[in-house]
């Protein structure tokens, strides 16, 4: 067992975890933040993307023990005061989701993209979302949603 102290969505959390607990396991099973989804569980599908210290990573492939002292933002941490984040609004407006399973990861990944590129081209959005797999939408409306968010942020 290891004791770790991290910050999740602005709240300080201190927990005793097993050595092999992944960040996705900590978020979902221990902190009950089930917005972070687990698809493939081997870092290919991107449903589990969260931000650690400001950068998007796949939480299924990070050990919680190794993140002691980090700041984590999950999909639950995007909205503020009951108001959706512009990226969430844009996914809703542009119908950038169907079943919604991949959406938390898509949104977290896209938010990270806009931190570094204010007005990405279609190609840049598609390249950036390479690690986020969606089996419903065909990606078209997801790209449209990211562009919509970029115009509002």
């Amino acid at each position: 067992m290891k004791k770790i102290a991290i910050e999740v969505n602005g709240k300080k959390v201190s927990k005793e975890i097993q050595d092999h607990t992944t960040l996705s396991g900590l978020l979902r099973d221990i902190l009950n933040l089930t917005g972070t989804h687990i698809g493939c569980d081997t870092s290919q599908c991107g449903a589990c993307v969260v931000h650690v210290d400001g950068k998007s990573i796949k939480s299924c492939t990070a050990l919680a023990a190794d993140l002691d002292g980090s700041k984590v933002t999950t999909i639950e941490g995007l909205a503020s005061n009951g108001k959706l984040h512009p990226m969430q609004e844009a996914f809703k407006k542009m119908h950038g989701l169907q079943c919604g399973f991949c959406t938390p990861g898509m949104v977290m990944s896209a938010v990270d993209l806009l931190k570094n590129k204010k007005n990405p081209s279609d190609q840049e959005i598609r390249d950036w979302l390479e690690g986020n797999i969606c089996r419903c939408t065909g990606y078209h409306n997801i790209v449209a949603a990211v562009k919509e968010a970029a115009s509002k942020m």
């Binding site: 870092s43 991107g46 993307v49 796949k58 492939t61 990070a62 990944s109 950036w128 690690g131």
Partner: peptide
């Protein structure tokens, strides 16, 4: 290499 999240780790 891989995708942005893989490149971040």
């Amino acid at each position: 290499i891989g995708d942005p999240q893989v490149r971040n780790r």
